[in-house]
């Protein structure tokens, strides 16, 4: 189970990578394993504004559907349109090609509310 050290995590199994004021968001390796084969991902339009832990989309696996939650508040500046035709990237490369959205953060202090890799590892143990 991959839990990269440099990322932050939500209780709902999203990860976030921060670069300046841009947060890239996806779901964790653990989450993709629990969901099984992902067949569709519904993502927001760019310019959508989100508050921390708003549902920003849904992820459909063969067996079930789950909501996706924004780890931080801000504005969606980019969505991973490759997932339209290749939702399986979320299974194959959850921290790479399986990224979902990029958020321009407006409250970076919120990052302190998220789990560290260590804390997330403990949660899924």
């Amino acid at each position: 189970m991959l839990v990269p050290e440099m990322l932050k995590y939500t209780e709902e199994h999203e990860w976030v990578a921060v670069n300046g004021d841009i947060a890239t968001v996806g779901i964790t390796d653990y989450a993709q394993g629990e969901l099984g084969d992902v067949v569709f991902i519904e993502l927001p339009q760019t310019n959508t504004s989100l508050n921390q832990m708003d549902a920003f989309g849904t992820i459909e696996a063969v067996k079930a559907v789950s909501d996706l939650f924004a780890p931080v508040s801000g504005t969606v500046i980019e969505v991973n349109s490759k997932l339209n035709n290749a939702p399986e990237f979320v299974n194959k490369d959850p921290y790479g090609d399986g990224w979902m959205i990029k958020i321009k953060m407006n409250a970076a202090a919120e990052l302190n509310n998220l789990l560290t890799a260590e804390a997330y590892k403990n949660k899924i143990k």
Partner: peptide, 20 residues
């Protein structure tokens, strides 16, 4: 296998992935 409880048994829900 990913094992789940189903009808009182530990059963395999999937091995390599449902689609495959």
């Amino acid at each position: 296998a990913k094992i789940v409880e189903f009808a009182g048994y530990y059963m395999p829900i999937q091995y390599r992935g449902i689609i495959e």
